[in-house]
Design a protein around this nucleic acid. Structure first.
Length: 648
RNA sequence: GCUGCUGUAGCUCAGAGGUAGAGCACUCCCUUGGUAAGGGAGAGGUCGAGAGUUCAAUUCUCUCCAGCAGCACCA
């Protein structure tokens, strides 16, 4: 007899070679109607595939989260059929489901434009309405090769050749159209539903390799139902509202110019935010035993040859040749400078771990297409530090960095942090043995910390493996910020040593680490994370004191003076405008606290306070408000009382 | 860097082969007004840069620069 195990533990007897569709039908007609696929022994499969005897089968209905991937993948096929119906001869490459939707890559003499999308979408809806059944066939390699050769589909042929010998070659049909595909698919094109939208066209390299042919990619978003699609589109609109490039302009924080692509012009308010972050980090690092140093921006080629940057990183460096024909380079990293600072004087094991920190501005010639507001620039300030320690101290130092970085992110409300471990890349310096040790040290620290992590093979820096800290913002987007890298190579290249207890000269291990990563980037992330509504301690202007009438000018000046004396960042607005006008303007500037003063307040020596994001006002004595605001404006972290006033 | 798109006033955007417009912002005047836009007047642009076609180019063509989306790369 033929048995199937159901998720609730029940065992069901069916006729041999039954399919999941038969199983659903045997349970109930309504279930059969809603079921679009099955999970057989944990793996998603077609409803029409024969079940193995004794399999654990879970029926997947269309509203199952697992069906979402099928919806998106089905739509990719529908998209390809629509495109080939509209433009016969278009070559197809690959079309997977992705986060939020799907895409398909095509090759065509003239790439698609957004004007083509409505027609394609209409065609897709026709194909969906036709409810063409998806059927799976297994072909021989020769048959498949013959078919795709005849069809003029070189990318399919390449994909076919990449399928290992012995694996089945599956063809999915929907009506007259077919595709080489691993599957699974739902019952018919109608199951894909109508909650989708083609969003954009873009170029994409065949197989993701920039040496390959550029294909034309069409993207779509898709969800199980209209509500989810709407929610996603709303979320996209929300992300656009938070765009730091737009908020940066509106809030007068920074701007960019054509003469300096990828370099920030910080306005007074943006710079204050930037410096507040530096002040905060300086406090946290000082408490963690770091000492701050500073190294030159431009250094001779010889240094970069010693460090290996000249050989391995030159295409990313800004070079400077002087009148006397000497080659300099703007530093793309701070580490070589720190090597020279370490190298001054003899270091003892008693000096270790030595933690040199620098808010160094580095320049990297990034590809033009990579630039993106503050998030990807060509000159940026790192909260960089290099920790020199003994091999015995290595794991503990990694752990300390890990604790520090997570604690710092928490101060900004980033609780959800993922860690990536990137191992040795092809283009690298140093022996395999030192790479073994470096990678092992990072693993050991992570295991001890008990924090889960994901390994990315071959993605380390050329001098060492690295941890990367990815944090998730208020609307669920991921941002890569901090990094921790182990380096056995640079100390060797620079001949760096310390005197061990035995009196022998030993080579220290070095850690590179940055917690914000790039101050520019982190500022941009914060703007988006907070949607411009910065917490009081970060807001460049914390309080605006605005008058209702000229009669309150003196009182407003006095109030502002008292707030300033208490260390708050305050501006006054005594303009000849109505209070509603002033309130609106400062609300648009996302000023956290507005204080409105009229004849009444001047008379009572009180203040009327209004918090950003509300339309409520509260009347308070000045003293009380002062205490409240000062407490709220306190910088989190170690000293807890620094307001960064007058800090560099 | 690659593919596609875009570049007109501080911002958001119209516009046409015959040397430019709107709203907001800005300046000035009137208004002293109680929590998201009071009224009036005014000023403001080598139409991203260079070349070409044309009697004439901001408009058409080409090259470059920058930006946007994606790819690739990356903090």
């Amino acid at each position: 007899m033929f048995h199937i195990h159901l998720p609730d533990g029940a065992i069901r007897a069916l006729k041999p070679a039954s399919t999941a569709a038969d199983l659903a039908a045997s349970i109930s007609p309504s279930l059969a109607k809603r079921t679009v696929a099955a999970r057989v022994d944990g793996k998603l499969t077609d409803l029409s595939a024969p079940l193995p005897d004794g399999a654990a089968v879970e029926l997947v209905t269309r509203d199952d989260p697992a069906a979402l991937e099928l919806i998106r993948h089905d739509l990719a096929h529908v998209l390809a059929e629509a495109v080939q119906a509209l433009w016969p001869g278009t070559k197809t490459a690959i079309g997977p489901a992705i986060e939020h939707g799907f895409y398909y890559d095509f090759e065509r003499d003239t790439p698609f434009t957004t004007e083509d999308l409505p027609a394609i979408e209409t065609k897709m809806r026709e194909i969906i309405a036709a409810k063409m059944p998806f059927t799976c066939e297994e072909w021989t390699r020769d048959a498949a090769r013959a078919h795709f050769e005849a069809a003029g589909e070189p990318y399919k042929l390449a994909l076919l050749e990449a399928i290992p010998e012995g694996e089945p070659i599956k063809i999915y049909r929907q009506g007259a159209w077919l595709d080489l595909c691993r599957g699974p698919h739902m019952r018919h094109t109608g199951d894909a539903g109508s909650a989708f939208k083609l969003t954009r066209v873009a170029g994409a390299y065949w197989r993701g390799n920039s040496n390959n042919q550029m294909l034309s990619r069409i993207y779509g978003v898709a969800f199980a139902d209209k509500a989810a699609l709407e929610a996603h589109l709303t979320m996209m609109a929300e992300a656009e509202k938070r765009d730091h490039r737009r908020l940066g302009r509106e809030m007068n924080l920074f701007h960019f110019e054509e003469v300096a692509p990828g370099s920030v012009f910080w306005h007074a308010k943006g710079w204050r935010l930037f410096q507040t972050l530096i002040g905060y980090m300086r406090d946290r690092q000082e408490a963690a035993g770091y000492i701050e140093v500073n190294s030159p921006d431009i250094m001779d080629r010889a240094l970069w040859e010693t460090s290996g940057h000249w050989q391995n990183y030159r295409q990313n460096m800004f070079l400077a040749k002087t009148e006397d024909d000497r080659d300099y380079a703007l530093k793309p990293m701070n580490c070589p400078g720190h090597m020279l600072i370490y190298g001054q004087g003899v270091k003892s094991y008693r000096d270790l771990p030595l933690k040199l920190a620098e808010f160094g501005k580095v320049h990297r010639y990034e590809p033009s297409g990579a630039l993106h507001g503050l998030l990807r620039v060509r000159s940026f300030t790192q909260d960089d530090a290099h920790i020199y320690c003994t091999p015995e101290q290595l794991t503990e130092e990694c752990l300390k960095v890990n604790d520090l970085v997570l604690s710092i992110y928490r101060d900004f409300g980033f609780e959800d942090v993922r860690i990536k471990l990137s191992t040795r890349p092809e283009n690298r310096i140093g022996s395999d043995e030192s790479w073994d040790r470096s990678e092992a040290a990072l693993r050991a620290a992570l295991d001890q910390a008990g924090h889960p992590y994901t390994i990315f093979e071959g993605e380390g820096a050329f001098y060492g493996p690295k941890l990367e800290y990815v944090l998730r913002d208020a609307i669920g987007r991921d941002w890569q910020c901090g990094t921790l890298q182990v380096d056995f190579n640079l100390p060797e290249r620079f001949g760096t040593t310390y005197v061990a207890p035995t009196g022998d000269k030993m080579v220290p291990v070095m850690l590179h680490r940055a917690l914000f990563g790039s101050l520019e980037r982190f500022t941009g992330i914060l703007i988006e994370h907070y949607a411009g509504h910065l917490p009081l301690w970060l807001a460049p202007v914390q309080v605006v004191v605005a008058t209702v009438t000229g009669a309150a000018d003196d009182w407003a000046t006095e109030v502002a003076g008292a707030l300033k004396a208490a260390g708050l960042r305050v501006e006054t607005d005594l303009r000849n405008e109505k209070i509603g006008y002033k309130v609106r303007e400062h609300a648009l500037q996302k000023i956290p606290v507005q204080i409105a003063l009229g004849a009444r307040e001047a008379e009572e020596r009180s203040i009327s306070i209004r918090r950003h994001g509300t339309d409520k006002t509260q009347s308070l004595p000045l003293e009380e408000a002062l205490q409240l605001l000062v407490a709220e404006a306190r910088v989190p972290g170690v000293t807890g009382h620094s307001l960064c006033v007058g800090k560099p």
